[in-house]
Design a protein around this nucleic acid. Structure first.
Lengths: 197, 197
DNA sequence: ATAATTTTTTGACTTTTGTCAAAAGTTGGG
DNA sequence: CCCAACTTTTGACAAAAGTCAAAAAATTAT
């Protein structure tokens, strides 16, 4: 019988994988050996515009955002990520092209960092790892689809109300200025919407 | 040496997979045995609101759209799919929950249809199939992300201009009424934007 | 605690986009 | 070739959301 291995910071990541497909001890060891646990202060950029993204992060503790600058130089947040979520610049990480967006921590973070090179090695060596990778990608894809639909289908006010309903905790951890651009509206409009209710 | 198998309608689908990961003859045969080539007239619904999506389609020939009805009962198109693209209702197919959107053909279509049950069997039996599935999901995920960013970041006019630039062919095959809701604007606004230029 | 910084709100005004109704243009069968 | 159905455009007006500037409130550092 194989020993039960618990790697502290990796426990939640392993649980996530295990909930999708059985995780062998060999693959667990590979994941640990091919990754790094890092601590990053808040307001630190993990990726800047023009850089190529080589790393995917799993958030053990903390929060981060993905954003870019529009033509007028204003920040537009596209994603907020918290504990037990995967943090990447989708476009740059998948294509290897220079990023048009930033990744920045919102709070002090503990992250598990995996280089794309190592990840690709694991995907080739442990074919069943692609099963989990596929399922996780499907899940994030779905979240994206819902996000795009909301932007098309609903007014500023409705989008705000849905967000409050679906993710009230977000408002505890992220400033309204950040949330406004995520909702695709100006900060002033968000402030007025909140007053109305 | 193994025979070269060419299955007519499957050729482009196989080429797509082959461009991602080597495709064994065994898997080719499984794909053919677990799918169906169907012909569907235009304006036919492949999925309706409330139904659970059990099928993923590969478009051999023709065009289709994914859309839903907003509160006022107006159609909002979220996606147009053409030759060599995969056609699904992301939410319903991935979760198995009832769909909130419709899939409808825009032209007479030839499609390769795969039931989720069969697809899942293949994902379990041929682990390397998950490699291709993962890569394809990553690609569609990326397209989605770009779409959501465009909706947040750009004005109606800019979104129109980007679409003309990136996908001029779309305007040859899809009516402006359909394209308007895809861009998240009213048909009248689209008409006025086009006149300006 | 206080000053400095950052975030949020408010007011006045402008711009963008939507709505409704009708006209014009286009397309496809019979 | 012509009618019916559908698509696109136009006009007048309304509603939604943005902008700029400043005030108020909250947070952080000293």
């Amino acid at each position: 019988m194989s020993e039960i291995i618990t790697y502290g910071d990796y426990q939640n990541l392993f649980n996530l994988f295990k909930s999708i497909y059985p995780l062998s001890n060999e693959l667990k060891v590979a994941i640990v050996n091919n990754s790094e646990v890092i601590e990053v202060n808040k307001k630190v950029k993990l990726l800047s515009v023009g850089e190529r993204s080589h790393t995917i992060y799993f958030v053990v503790k903390g929060a981060a955002r993905v954003y870019y600058l529009n033509k007028e130089g204003k920040e537009t947040n596209t994603w907020f990520l918290f504990e037990n979520e995967l943090l990447i610049s989708v476009y740059s990480f998948y294509t290897g092209n220079p990023s048009f967006e930033y990744i920045e921590t919102l709070e002090d973070c503990k992250l598990i960092a995996v280089k794309r090179e190592k990840l690709d090695e694991m995907y080739l060596k442990y074919m069943e790892f692609n099963f989990s990778g596929r399922k996780l990608t499907e899940f994030y894809h779905m979240r994206n689809e819902i996000q795009a639909n909301d932007l098309r289908m609903y007014s500023a006010k409705e989008r705000y109300e849905h967000l409050v309903e679906r993710n009230p905790a977000l408002f505890q951890r992220v400033s309204l200025g950040h949330i406004a651009s995520y909702l695709g509206i100006s900060q002033e409009t968000l402030s007025r919407i909140r007053k109305q209710k």
